[in-house]
Computed example of a mutant assay.
Amino acid sequence: MDLLERLIAVFADHGYAAVFIALMLCGAGIPLPEDITLVAGGAIAGLGYANVHIMAGVTMVGVLLGDAAMFLLGHHYGAHILQWKPIALLMPPRRYAKMQDKFTRYGNRLMFFARFLPGMRTAVYITAGASHRVSFWRFLLLDGMAALISVPFWVYLGYFGANRREWLLMWVHRGQSSLWVLGGVVLVLLLVLGWRRRQRRVHAKNH
């Protein structure tokens, strides 16, 4: 919670720009928890230093740009990126091999669920780009769908809990489990919609 308080103090002084830069650093693999950063951004809106709806938009852009930058670095430099010292520390060859294996097993679903796996996002996004198994726009679509669940959740949680820190702390701890439930519900809905669309196409062809 000390980190949250420090981030709130910094963001209150420097506004949207500070939140945006912090989220870009989160995307680059800096050990700064993205969820706490988003909660702090929402909290300064709850304290009157920002507009919460604008904050939600700013944080969404910051998250997606940070993720896209990691994907594009992996896509452009491939496995050679593992030779960069910052990346090598974040993702040694053994971890990269494990990520490749996970892509083989889980496919594009891994990019969606990476949003709900703190500590794995950057490694997943770099590997996704380096694998050349998915286009940039497909990556952005899957990542964006997951971000539409997680980003507003954390920002508005911070907003409503800005003046209720014990309540906020409780939900920060519960939040990751709640996001898994939300992500699972959304995935099931998408699968059902996709199945129904295929059924309609089959029915239309038969008639």
Rank of each mutant, 00 (worst) to 15 (best):
A12E: 13
H173N: 13
V186T: 14
L4K: 05
L142H: 02
L4Q: 06
V124P: 02
H76Y: 12
L25Y: 02
C26E: 06
H80T: 08
G62C: 05
A114K: 01
V155P: 00
Y106V: 07
S178V: 10
R109M: 13
F11D: 04
T127I: 02
A79R: 15
I21K: 10
V186N: 08
A28D: 05
I36P: 01
G42I: 05
L148H: 08
G66Y: 00
L117M: 15
G74N: 03
H207Y: 11
D143C: 12
T127D: 00
M70S: 02
K205H: 12
P118Y: 09
G42M: 06
G66E: 00
L140H: 05
V188C: 12
L73P: 00
I126A: 01
L65R: 05
P31K: 10
F136G: 08
V151F: 03
W154M: 08
M1T: 08
M1N: 13
P86E: 12
V186I: 14
V124D: 02
A43K: 09
I126S: 00
H173Q: 13
M120G: 08
G107N: 08
M111Y: 06
A69G: 03
H80A: 15
V192P: 03
W180N: 09
R121I: 03
L140R: 03
L189N: 09
A79F: 08
A97V: 11
P93W: 10
R133I: 04
A68C: 08
A43T: 15
L142P: 00
R201W: 10
K102L: 13
F20V: 02
L90I: 08
M55D: 02
G42R: 04
V52H: 04
G129D: 04
P92A: 09
A12I: 04
Q100L: 15
V155Q: 03
L73F: 04
M24R: 02
T59F: 04
F160R: 09
A40G: 10
T127R: 00
G57C: 09
C26K: 02
L193K: 15
G42T: 11
E5I: 11
E34V: 07
Y96N: 01
A97Y: 07
Y106P: 02
R197H: 15
L187K: 13
G62N: 04
D67P: 01
A130S: 15
A204R: 14
L82Q: 11
F116R: 07
V10N: 07
L182I: 08
Y16P: 04
A22T: 15
G158I: 06
W171N: 14
D101A: 13
H207T: 10
W154R: 01
M111D: 06
R6D: 11
V58Q: 01
